[in-house]
Simulated scan of single mutants.
Amino acid sequence: MTNHRVVFQPSGRQGTVAEGTTLLDAARRLGVDVDSICGGRQTCGKCKILVENGEFAKYALESSAAHLSSADATETDYFAHHGGMPNGARLSCAACISGDVLVTVPPESQSHRQIIRKTATERVIEVDPTVRQVFVEVEQHELGARKGDWERLQEALAREWDFQNLHIDLQALRRLGPALKSGKHRITVVVWNDAEVIDVQPGYHEGVYGLAVDVGSTTVAAHLCDLRTGAV
């Protein structure tokens, strides 16, 4: 089996992966934070990266966009509906490695990006929320099968997102059956602390928010925060 080198910027993480590996899978194996909530279905666009072209003496490799598989119809259609495909841009879940590549992960695609809030002082904040949204496709129920909706959802979350030993909130469990039916077994799941499913929604959704509250001696301040990007 042919192997190729892949280097990710700005982290500098690098390694060797088998030909045909997607950039998203390579990033996960090398511990690179690349955002993705659709499970590699080319739906959310959060895993967009930039492929560098040229010779890079620092890494002793020659990188080229031609060292990746061509964009398929789904990826091309995604970029067509989102302002076109910038030079070097690819969805890492769709691009398969066929040669050495140097890849830049832009800030908006980093799942644990650092942001600076400028008020009285500057502080670096790591965005690592307790609540996450993930998109999964659950196997349909088969006549005579003994697995319920929750058991099949657990299997899908373990298979696609490596969640293990999850619990589910009672209200979320009550909504699970209707959500699976309405979403044709494709649902968005909200997971708290990698331990409990607290909500389910039919189809693909994005947008999970938290409230940051500062209780002072004379005033109370609250800010609504996007838990994925850190935006206030």
Rank of each mutant, 00 (worst) to 15 (best):
V232D: 02
D72W: 15
V190G: 00
V101T: 10
A57W: 07
C225H: 07
R186V: 07
G207V: 04
R228Y: 08
V124W: 12
L153M: 13
Q164I: 14
H167V: 08
D35F: 06
Y204P: 02
L224S: 09
V191G: 03
V220N: 11
G88F: 03
I125H: 08
H141F: 02
K46C: 08
V103C: 07
L24A: 05
E196K: 10
T76W: 02
D72A: 12
A195W: 02
R228W: 06
K118S: 10
S217N: 08
V220C: 14
L102T: 08
L227F: 04
S63I: 00
P129M: 06
G148D: 09
L170P: 00
K48L: 07
H205E: 13
K181W: 06
F8Y: 15
V51T: 06
C225F: 09
A221G: 04
G203R: 13
G99M: 05
G20K: 04
L166T: 05
K181D: 10
I49A: 08
D100E: 15
G216W: 06
S98W: 04
S11A: 05
N87L: 13
R13G: 05
V32K: 01
H4G: 06
P10G: 02
E151R: 12
L157R: 14
A89Y: 14
E142F: 01
E62K: 09
Q42A: 15
V189L: 00
Q140D: 06
A65W: 00
G230C: 09
L211Q: 05
L176N: 00
L176G: 00
A73E: 14
R5K: 13
A27C: 12
S36H: 15
S64Q: 09
V215L: 13
D33A: 10
E19V: 09
T119H: 05
P86W: 12
S69K: 01
N193L: 10
H67I: 02
G210N: 10
M1E: 13
T121I: 07
K181F: 08
C93W: 01
T74S: 10
V131S: 10
Q14D: 13
D25N: 15
H205L: 13
A120G: 13
L24N: 01
S11C: 12
D35W: 04
T188I: 12
G83P: 08
K46A: 14
D214Q: 10
T2R: 05
P129L: 06
R146Q: 11
V34S: 01
F163I: 01
S182L: 13
D33Y: 02
D226E: 11
D33H: 06
V101G: 00
Q42P: 07
A195F: 02
P129Y: 05
S11G: 04
H81I: 07
F56V: 03
D162H: 12
T119L: 05
R152D: 09
G99R: 04
V105E: 05
P10M: 03
A172I: 09
V138E: 01
N3M: 10
I115T: 10
A80H: 13
V189N: 00
I49D: 02
I187T: 02
G31A: 14
A27Y: 04
I37Q: 01
R123E: 12
R175Y: 08
H167Q: 15
L166Q: 04
A89I: 14
A26C: 03
V103L: 09
Q140K: 11
T130F: 04
S98R: 13
